[in-house]
Amino acid sequence: MLTEALARLGRSGIGAIAGLGRASLLLVAMLGGLRELAPRPRLLLAQVYNIGVLSVLIIAVSGLFVGMVLSLQGYYVLAQFGASESLGIMVAASLVRELGPVVAALLVAGRAGSALTAEIGLMKATEQLSALEMMAVDPVRRILTPRFFGGFLAMPLLAAMFSALGVLGGWFVGVGLLGVDDGAFWSQMQAKLDFREDVVNGVIKSLVFGVVVTWIALFQGYDATPTSAGVSRATTRSVVHAALAVLGLDFILTALMFGG
């Protein structure tokens, strides 16, 4: 009874570590495909389109509304202290430092990451990946590498769009609807937000999230059990794992960047 429970724990532990190992090997293999990707930029272009361009709408709309809500809620608290002029700092700092990279990564994991997993998983289930291998084409380098770098490139741009539109949404609500002074909104924001501290750290975060989200999505697809149920489970796992990884890494990155 006890030994059975211990064995089950051990099995799941070994399974997790083996999965981590396969994921790391896949990452190395994908990075190794960079040399073959360089002469074929069109493959990358198609993936930037899939992951980036097709995510613009959800990113833009979410960014706008998150900024507007931040502005409304922030104004409520700040007005109690007579500090409603600081609304710009609050909206911009929370967007550029945290919400931009994190929410954009969560949205990309849901919109593009799940699609990547399902696509790769189905390719595996329908033996398209094996067919490629039969033709002496390495499926990791041909299929996975362009998707990985597409996500890596698209994520910081999407996060920047999210933050920029969020600030504009916050400005619209704060200045346009709630009557915060236009000059104070921008000038206090500029005085308090630092390029290196805030903007660059936000971009670093979104680069890390871009790697993690696409890596998890591609690994889950590549590692999926090649059945309908397996692909469905892998798609779920892809979104759940990516969301958990983004939120966990965000804490670690924030502690490293702003904690000291």
């Binding site: 550029v96 741009l157 920047a160 933050s163 920029a164 921008w186 937000l193 390029f195 903007v199 971009v203």
Partner: peptide, 13 residues
């Protein structure tokens, strides 16, 4: 994307 980054660098920070 680059316009957004530029906006964040110049206008926001």
């Amino acid at each position: 994307g680059f316009v957004a980054l530029f906006f964040l660098s110049m206008r926001v920070s």
